[in-house]
Structures are given as C-alpha cells and as structure tokens.
C-alpha cells in the first residue's frame, strides 16, 4: 500500500470514528444514522443525483483551490469569485434573447462566469505579489466584500421585484439535467467538472506553466532564482483559479436554479479546498474526494431531523485536520 493511500485510510477511519462519537453524544445510534445517511444518498436515484449535483460544484471549486495549492497558495477567495460570477451569469443571462441557441449561450455565459471569477481573484494575487499580503486574509476579506456587493447589486435592481434572485434565464441558456435522476438537479455541468479536474492535472504535468507552478509551490525563492517571475505567476495562478471557480455558475445558475440567487453556492469554496487538500495532485482523487464530501453534505440533509446536519462541516474540518497530521502519525506507527 502506498504511503499516501495509507494516510488517507487512516484519516477516513479517524473521521468516521469522530462522526460516530458525535452521533452517540447526541443520543442517537451511530449504525442507524449512518445507514439513514447512505439510504438518503446512494440509496435512491434522486439521492444519487443530488450527490452528483453537489459533487459537481465541489469538484469545480476544488480544482480552483488545487491549482493554487500546487503553487503554494491557499485560495480562500473561491466563494467570493463564485458569488460574483453567479451574479454576472444570472444578470447577463437573463437579458439574452429568448430564442438564443445553447451553442451560443453556453460558451458565452461560461466565458462571462470565468471572466468575473478571474477578475474577482485578481486583487488577491496582486496584493500577495506586490505587497506581500497573505492570500488567506485578502481572500476572506474579498469573500465578505463579494457578499455585500452581490446583496447591494440585487437590491439596486438586478433582482426581480420582491425577490432575491434575477429574472429567469431563457431556455437556451439552461443546461440540461439528466432524466435518469428524476427530480434531482444533476446536469451536464458534471461533465465540465470532470473535464476540469483532469485538465488541471494535465496542465500541471504536461505544460510549461504547470512546471513553473510546481517550482513555485516547491520553493518561491528557488523558483525566483531559476528565473521564474514569481509575482507575475502568482497573479496568473490566482486568476486562473478564480476563472475555474466562476464556472460553478454553470452548475448552480444554469443547471439548477435557472437564475442567480443570493447565497446560492455559499460555502462550497471551503468544501472544495478540503477536497483539494485530500486529493493532493491527483485529478481522479479530486473527483473521489468531491463525491465523498457531496455524500456527507447531501446525507446531512437526510439525517437532519435526528442529528443536526452541521455535524457534516465538523466532519469535513476533522478530515482536513486528520489528513494533515496523518503522515506524522503514520511515520510514528511505522517506526514501532
């Protein structure tokens, strides 16, 4: 067994254990809560569809976080980029002509989402590269500012009267759902998410930019000494990350709701970062980690009546922590 796999299994074991302890502390039986969690997710076509739907956004947000992580940057600004991109896609999409063809509408709105996300993440890169401001702090601040800005723009007239969402997109701008999962929001954006996950891994392995990002992640000073313009590459990576994040609008706005709504994808950026931390450098790993967290998040809804679903965030946080400490624990176990 490879060390990485052993580490992940160890972390999974610790997270499962803490989940069950929390359930026990809440006075419920872990076995039946876990089986209810699985019945509500992988047990029905609807549940499975919802898992895939949530995994789509998590994987896209995760790819955004992953490419930045490979450059040694913690991209916390994914949530803000998603919020701004969703609003841009919703507001512009709603104004497209009624009879627009998907062939035109999909790439156009995808480009708008990516551009909005990239633009929103640009300051994080500039602040880091030019002023040395830590990306975690600027990312959090920009998330908060994005929330306020989106709320302001909705109130200032982008939302339909007496609602918190934009007018609906024309049919041609909607992304088709899969009929196999009745009632569920899973849609063709899932294919985009899979493609992005593998594309990021491919770019990292096969392109010059990928190698430069890796060099940056290994050591900023060494990369600089090797002639890589560190600051400029950091700005580029964080903008690409923001652009990827912006594509979440495909899933939530164009596939699910058919309009942009305040708080639509809130928090998915952190779950994506968690998935990226689990996945390391692997594209397939990112998809598996996204499925895992999507199962937890959808399963949280199905157990909510018995155990508060907030337990899911705790388990996700614990999983990150356990994955982070598992190599050291593994080495200590090995040494015995």
């Amino acid at each position: 067994m490879t060390a990485r796999l052993r580490v992940l299994l160890l972390a999974a074991l610790l997270s499962a254990l803490s989940f069950e302890l929390a359930v026990l502390a809440f006075g419920e039986s872990p076995g039946s809560v876990v089986s209810q969690l699985f019945a509500g997710t992988w047990g029905t076509r609807y549940g499975l569809g919802q898992v895939l739907f949530k995994a789509t956004s998590i994987a896209i947000a995760g790819a955004a976080a992953q490419i930045a992580l490979r450059a040694g940057l913690f991209q916390i600004g994914v949530d803000g980029a998603i919020a701004v991109a969703a609003l841009a896609v919703g507001a512009i999409g709603a104004r497209l002509p009624l009879g627009i063809s998907p062939l035109l509408a999909w790439p156009l709105l995808a480009a708008i989402g990516a551009a909005a996300g990239a633009l929103w993440s640009l300051p994080i890169g500039v602040l880091r590269a030019r002023f040395g401001a830590h990306e975690v702090i600027s990312g959090i601040m920009l998330n908060k500012i994005a929330g306020a800005l989106v709320g302001y723009l909705f109130a200032a007239g982008l939302a339909e009267k007496a609602s918190v969402h934009t007018p609906p997109l024309p049919q041609g701008a909607r992304i088709s759902r899969f009929a196999f999962f009745p009632g569920s929001a899973v849609n063709l954006a899932l294919v985009v998410a899979i493609a992005i996950a593998f594309a990021v891994a491919w770019v990292m392995r096969r392109t010059l930019l990928g190698r430069e990002i890796q060099a940056l992640g290994a050591s900023e000073s060494a990369a600089g000494a090797a002639g890589i313009p560190v600051g400029r590459k950091q700005i580029v990576v964080l903008s690409i990350s923001g652009a990827i994040a912006g594509l979440c609008a495909l899933n939530d706005v164009m596939g699910y709701k058919g309009y942009a709504e305040e708080g639509l994808s809130a928090g998915v950026g952190f779950t994506g970062l968690a998935a990226a931390l689990l996945a390391g450098r692997s594209g397939a790993g990112l998809l598996v980690a996204s499925l895992f967290f999507a199962t937890l998040s959808q399963g949280g809804l199905s157990i909510n009546a018995r155990v508060p679903m907030e337990i899911v965030d705790v388990v996700i946080g614990l999983t990150i922590l356990f994955v982070a400490i598992a190599p050291a624990v593994d080495r200590k176990l090995e040494a015995r």
Binding site: A22, F74, F270, L273, G317, I320, L321
Partner: peptide, 16 residues
C-alpha cells in the same frame, strides 16, 4: 491547513 480546518470545525461545531 490546521487553522482553516479549525475554523471550519468551529463554524459547523458551534451551530451543531
């Protein structure tokens, strides 16, 4: 990573 994980645990854990 530890700090971000603890923040996530705090945000979910306090609501729990």
């Amino acid at each position: 990573v530890s700090g971000l994980a603890l923040n996530l645990i705090a945000s979910g854990g306090t609501r729990f």
